[in-house]
């Protein structure tokens, strides 16, 4: 069972989003970086599958040189190999990203002389949320794909991938090799172990430089929506706030 997981480095935005002066980039000077929760779960799912059935987990990212940090985090929780598609550009959109990832996977599979059994992605990236790279890569490689998966079983040459949509459970049965995009909640990711961290430090991360090809969707500017910044009306401090809070609940019609 060999699994490849694709992740994306994103800033760990907290209480507010700040933009740089050009309104095209986030001001990340005070922020740490992470991957989407969906992708953390994709890594965990890959590691669990390889633990159960044997095999390896390769983690891949397209991003700046610093994205090696996210690859090492994945290794510290159980991934075995890592590949960085290194670029200084921050305008790789969904099509350019699809092409770069597809080529890299074709290269890896040619080297291994066999396809990965499963390619895992997050359902959508935390920052750009384009909702499509996993599906496009699947088509480019001619493999079946299911998205937004919250429960996955693999065995007997197929993947049984489940999710719920508007109160209906949907089950997709995909012949391997296949592509699955997952959502947070499919599992509870583990924390890095000490030996894991040691291994992450030592692992050699392979690096390729993908070529960028222009695409039709061009970002022009970013803005933080002007949701009314209000100042909450303070009902009180500690338990003394309870009577006015009860009154408020009555006023809002929540209690009689």
């Amino acid at each position: 069972m060999d699994v490849l997981v694709c992740v994306k480095r994103v800033p760990m935005v907290g209480g507010r989003i700040a933009l740089q002066g050009d309104r095209r980039r986030l001001d990340t000077s005070l922020l740490g970086f992470t991957v989407s929760p969906h992708e953390e779960c994709a890594v965990e799912e890959g590691v669990r599958l390889s633990e159960a059935a044997g095999g390896s987990v390769t983690v891949l990212t397209l991003g700046p040189p610093e994205a090696v940090e996210q690859l090492r985090t994945a290794i510290s929780v159980g991934a075995h190999h890592a590949l960085l598609l290194e670029t200084d550009r921050d305008d790789f959109g969904p099509l350019a990203t699809t092409r770069a990832i597809t080529r890299a996977i074709e290269g890896l599979e040619a080297e291994r002389q066999s396809p990965f059994d499963l390619l895992l992605f997050g359902n959508e990236a935390a920052d750009t949320a384009d909702y499509q790279v996993g599906v496009r890569v699947a088509h480019a490689l001619g493999r079946p794909v299911a998205t937004g998966i919250k429960h996955l079983e693999v065995g007997g040459g197929s993947a049984r991938a489940r999710r719920t949509y508007r109160g209906t459970e949907e089950l997709f049965i995909l012949a391997l090799p296949a592509v699955v995009t997952v959502k947070e909640g499919i599992n509870l990711p583990r924390y890095p172990s000490l030996p894991g961290r040691m291994r992450a430090k030592k692992t050699v991360v392979a690096t390729l430089r993908p070529t960028y090809e222009a695409e039709g969707l061009e970002m022009r500017s970013l803005a933080v929506p002007t949701t009314e910044r209000r100042s909450a009306e303070v009902l009180g401090h500690g338990v003394e706030a309870v009577p006015p809070l009860v009154e408020l609940l009555v006023k809002l019609g929540v209690i009689e």
Partner: peptide
């Protein structure tokens, strides 16, 4: 606090049990 309409400044552990009792 800059997104809520109303706020209670206090600990959940204190305020919530008192609220439940009051209701």
């Amino acid at each position: 606090m800059s997104r809520a309409d109303y706020a209670v400044i206090g600990s959940v552990a204190e305020v919530l049990p008192a609220l439940v009792d009051a209701i």
